[in-house]
Design a protein around this nucleic acid. Structure first.
Lengths: 352, 352
DNA sequence: TCCCGAAGTTCGATTTAAATG
DNA sequence: GCATTTAAATCGAACTTCGGG
């Protein structure tokens, strides 16, 4: 590896001057162009690349951010990661990716490792989160710009990017209602997942405002499980139960897309056609919801945008740290969007 | 941040001794336990964490590997990344994740950045690769242990982990044949993708051995496109063409799962039931193939295993570099596996 | 000679202070 | 004082060398 000293020797100047020129430091304005040219030529000729470790040791910067995902097999993550990656790239930052596997010990170990590497910021994708909140408290102590995607921590210095779950759920139920559905079944999320409550609130508010009656027997809850894909299985089983009840319903609103897929499977197995005999709506717009047959109607979360926004937030944080200002937490709530595809339609002759 | 010198002061020893003790260096065997205890206690009391940049500067190690993906929105990537992450974790390595977006310039820029960061190895997930091969030549020059997943470079020092495409395709066609299908349609991959040829070879060999006639009019090719998800659209359109031809077929073998999903959509839109009237088989076993209705029969690639194997290969390479041995390229070919689900069955009254 | 510990050098860059004309 | 350049200190840890008992 060629060092700055070799460039110095080659160009005939000292390493100090080389450093000043190549970094275009303030002092560089005193240095004549001829000198600059010679140094730059020497650097290029030797193929000089500064050693980032030596540099980081001095100036405390790493141009690295840590990204923690709670479970990256969750298809919800991929577009978020893409958004993060793409935005970081344009800022010349690089992400260190860690996957916590929803395990507390792994969270702690990874956090330690990232801190050791002096990441300049942290982005946490808190999808399907079953780790106790106090673990997240660990994040507070380090004076590190941190943004959390998918979950909001009220107190403290941690920024958040979330989707407006209440509005999303409101849009979903409104869609079904406006198609003419009145007997609607619900599969709500696990209680411990923070998205669950606001989504249900959106439903209840709509129901109240439009005098839509919600049959308690048609409202089921997903069990607690630390595996996001398990909601497919759960959605399948709960829908079977629903069907077995023989209480008619013409539409089903699922907690998320995975659940909706499970529901569709159960319905089709029972000989009930979607959407002709039963409409189904999901939430998230996971990557391949559009590729299924029937394509899933759902509430789209702007995931790439969420990733981008998280990066922008921590970028400001990094700048603040540089200028020794305090980092201020920001809480952004993005608007979800109804995407109408083929799994919903006007109610036919009820069969459920 | 607390430094080794502060630990030295706190414990009453020199920083040399502290370093020797905390790293359990060879010289540590001369140091009495009482000294060690005192030093360790001091380190713990102060919460000492060694500065990895200072350390890397000295010993040239970074415990970091670069991971380059060509397109991470491809669902094929996720389980591979998981496999990589998990295996690295247990080796106390951390991955820097980069996504090339199938762009040459981005590849080069990221490669440069990773090299600057002194990653100890490189893992390239060459899924859906449309970058010219000469770019990959760039990888050769650096003396860096490198493993490529999904593509084999014959010459050179780059290791590879691939799946046996020929065997996989053979298993797929055999499955359809043994169910009784004789008029089978094919959607092959784009010519420029390296998986395409061996898969087709597997089909041809089987056909020859079992005197299965392949109707050239039922063999179509996916167009070249740098977007992996586009094969859904393409699969859809090509299947429409197939149906329009009015040449009967009772089964369809698709290049990959995305294509198969597109095909199923086209069939179902044309009122052709899967699998009753037409069987469909995919390739890859992408994460949610099992969640569709009908669940997709496919050839499973052991993706997590591939990620794991790539890490193991570069680990050996890293060890070799440490001991100043030459790194030797390894080429591992893993066995794919037929997964029978609901999209294939015995041929019914042909409708296509 | 063996054991224990410290002083000083090194890794490769940045930055401060200071020396030239 | 100004423009131009550089010697030397610094970042934090690891390693080489050396000395005392």
């Amino acid at each position: 590896m060629v060092t700055i000293r070799e460039v110095a020797k080659e160009s005939g100047f000292s390493s100090t001057t080389v450093s000043i020129v190549l970094n275009n430091a303030p002092l560089a304005r005193y240095i004549p162009d001829t000198t600059k040219k010679r140094i730059e030529r020497a650097a290029k000729k030797l193929g000089y690349r500064p050693n980032l470790f030596a540099r980081s040791l001095r100036n405390q910067r790493t141009h690295t951010v840590g990204v923690m995902v709670f479970d990256m097999t969750d298809p919800y993550c991929t577009p978020i990661l893409r958004g993060i990656e793409n935005t970081l790239f344009h800022a010349s930052f690089l992400p260190i990716l860690t996957d916590v596997h929803n395990e507390r010990s792994r969270f702690e170990r990874y956090l330690e490792m990232l801190l050791d590497r002096r990441v300049e910021a942290l982005i946490v994708v808190a999808n399907w989160l079953f780790v106790e909140i106090d673990v997240l408290g660990d994040l507070e102590k380090a004076n590190l710009p941190t943004a959390m995607i998918g979950r909001e921590l009220e107190a403290g210095s941690i920024s958040s990017v979330t989707v407006d779950n209440e509005l999303g759920a409101h849009a979903a139920i409104e869609h079904l209602f406006s198609l003419g559905h009145r007997r609607i079944a619900f599969i709500r999320g696990p209680k411990r997942i923070t998205d669950t409550a606001p989504r249900w609130k959106g439903v209840r508010n709509f129901a109240k405002a439009h005098e839509l009656e919600i049959d308690a027997a048609l409202v089921l809850d997903l069990p607690e499980s630390s595996d996001p894909i398990s909601s497919f299985e759960a959605g399948y089983k709960l829908t079977e139960n629903l069907i077995r009840q023989k209480r008619p319903f013409t539409a089903l609103m699922a907690f998320d897309d995975m659940t909706a897929l499970g529901a569709i499977r159960a319905l089709s197995k029972a000989g009930i056609k979607v959407p002709e005999q039963c409409s189904v709506i999901g939430f998230d717009d996971v990557a391949h919801s559009s590729l299924l047959t029937p394509a899933l109607t759902t509430i789209r979360q702007p995931m790439a945008e969420m990733g981008k926004m998280a990066v922008n937030i921590v970028s400001e944080g990094i700048a603040a740290v540089q200028e020794k200002n305090k980092i201020i937490a920001q809480h952004r709530k993005l608007m979800p969007e109804l995407v109408v595809r083929d799994s919903t339609g006007t109610p036919g002759p009820a069969r459920c």
